Simulated assay, not measured.
Amino acid sequence: MAVLRSFGVGASVARATLGWIRRDPTYAAMLERTNFHGRTVSLAGGPALAAGATVGAAAGARNARTAAAAVTAGMVSGSVGLYDDMVGNRPEQKTAKGFAGHLGALREGRVTSGLVKIAGVGAAGLAASALIGSKRTSLLGRSADVLLGAGVIAGMANFVNLLDLRPGRAIKAGVAIGAPIGGGVAAGTLGAATAMLPEDLGEEIMLGDAGANAMGALLGVALTSRTGMGGRFVALAALAALTAASEKVSYTKVIQDTPWLRRLDELGRRPA
C-alpha cells in the first residue's frame, strides 16, 4: 500500500507541476526547444519529473535519512541539470564536449554549464550516500560504503541521461531498472516518470538533463538504500562499463541494429 501511495504522489506532483509550467507563458517560451525530428517540444517535462520524483521518493522512503537523501539527490541533480539545459545551448558552451572537454575549458579559465552539472551531481551523490549511511562499524568500511553509494547515485544519473536521446527511451529504461529494485523510493520516482511518458512519446515534451539526471539519481538512491557493499560494487562496476562503452559505440545504433530493442524503443512513439 505504501508503495502505491508513493507512486501516486510522484505522478500527481509531476502532472501538477507540468500543468503549472505549461500554463505560464514566460516559462513555457523559455523552455521551448527543437527535437531531432525538427518538432517544437518543451523542456517542461524535466523540472516536472524532477519535482514529482523527488516528492514521491521522499514520501516512500522508509526513514528520515533516506527521505533526506532522496530530496538531496533529486533536487540538486534536477537543478544543475536544468541549469545545463538552459545555459548549455549557448554557442560558447557547445564547444566543450564530454568530461575531457569540460576539464579542458576549465584549464582555459572557463567554467562550463556541463562542469557545473557534473560537480553538482557528484556532490549530491556523495551527500545522499552519506545520509543513507552504512551498517558497518569500522570507519574504513563505512567510508567504502559511502563512496560506492555516491558512485552508484552519480553514475546512474549519468547513465539515464545518456539514454535520453529519443522520445520515451530514458523513461522505459528507468522503469526497467527501477521495477526490480522495488521499494517506495523507486516507486515514487517511477510514478513521476510514467506520468510524463505519454507527452514524452508524443514529442510534446522532453526530459532534458533536469529530468533524466533527477530520475537516474533517485533510482541510484533507491538501489543504494537497499544494498550493501557487494551490491553497490556490482552496480557501480556495471555502470562504469556501460558508460565507458558509450564512448566507443552509439547506444542508438545498437538499439536500431537489434530488432527486439528497436521494437521496444519505438513502442508507443509518435510516427516520424
Results as ranks from 00 to 15, higher is better:
180 P>G: 06
178 G>Y: 05
184 G>E: 11
177 I>M: 03
196 M>Q: 03
168 G>L: 00
192 A>W: 04
184 G>S: 03
181 I>Y: 11
193 A>Y: 07
171 I>T: 12
192 A>P: 00
180 P>L: 08
186 A>Y: 14
183 G>I: 04
199 E>D: 15
199 E>F: 06
192 A>F: 01
166 R>Q: 14
192 A>T: 01
179 A>R: 15
170 A>N: 12
176 A>P: 06
189 T>Y: 13
189 T>E: 03
175 V>K: 09
198 P>N: 08
186 A>W: 12
183 G>P: 08
183 G>Q: 10
195 A>R: 11
171 I>Q: 14
166 R>D: 13
174 G>E: 00
197 L>V: 02
195 A>V: 06
171 I>N: 11
177 I>T: 02
185 V>G: 10
181 I>R: 14
175 V>Q: 06
177 I>E: 09
200 D>A: 08
183 G>T: 09
190 L>K: 04
170 A>I: 12
171 I>R: 14
172 K>L: 01
192 A>D: 01
193 A>H: 08
170 A>E: 09
180 P>F: 06
192 A>N: 00
200 D>S: 10
197 L>S: 10
175 V>F: 13
178 G>P: 14
187 A>Y: 10
172 K>V: 05
172 K>D: 11
171 I>A: 15
193 A>I: 03
199 E>P: 07
172 K>T: 00
196 M>T: 03
193 A>Q: 10
182 G>F: 08
184 G>R: 07
178 G>F: 06
185 V>R: 07
183 G>S: 05
193 A>G: 09
170 A>V: 11
191 G>M: 03
198 P>G: 13
200 D>W: 07
176 A>N: 11
183 G>F: 09
195 A>S: 10
190 L>F: 01
186 A>G: 15
192 A>Y: 00
167 P>N: 14
199 E>Y: 04
198 P>Q: 06
185 V>H: 12
190 L>C: 00
196 M>N: 01
195 A>L: 08
185 V>W: 07
178 G>C: 11
182 G>W: 04
170 A>D: 09
185 V>F: 11
192 A>S: 03
174 G>Q: 14
180 P>Q: 10
194 T>E: 08
182 G>M: 02
193 A>L: 03
177 I>K: 02
167 P>H: 04
178 G>R: 12
172 K>S: 08
200 D>K: 09
185 V>D: 13
174 G>V: 00
176 A>Y: 08
187 A>T: 05
179 A>D: 00
198 P>R: 07
196 M>S: 03
173 A>V: 00
194 T>V: 14
173 A>S: 02
200 D>R: 09
193 A>S: 11
182 G>K: 05
186 A>S: 14
177 I>R: 13
188 G>P: 04
172 K>W: 05
189 T>K: 02
169 R>G: 15
189 T>I: 03
181 I>W: 06
179 A>Y: 07
179 A>M: 13
182 G>T: 09
167 P>V: 12
168 G>W: 00
188 G>L: 04
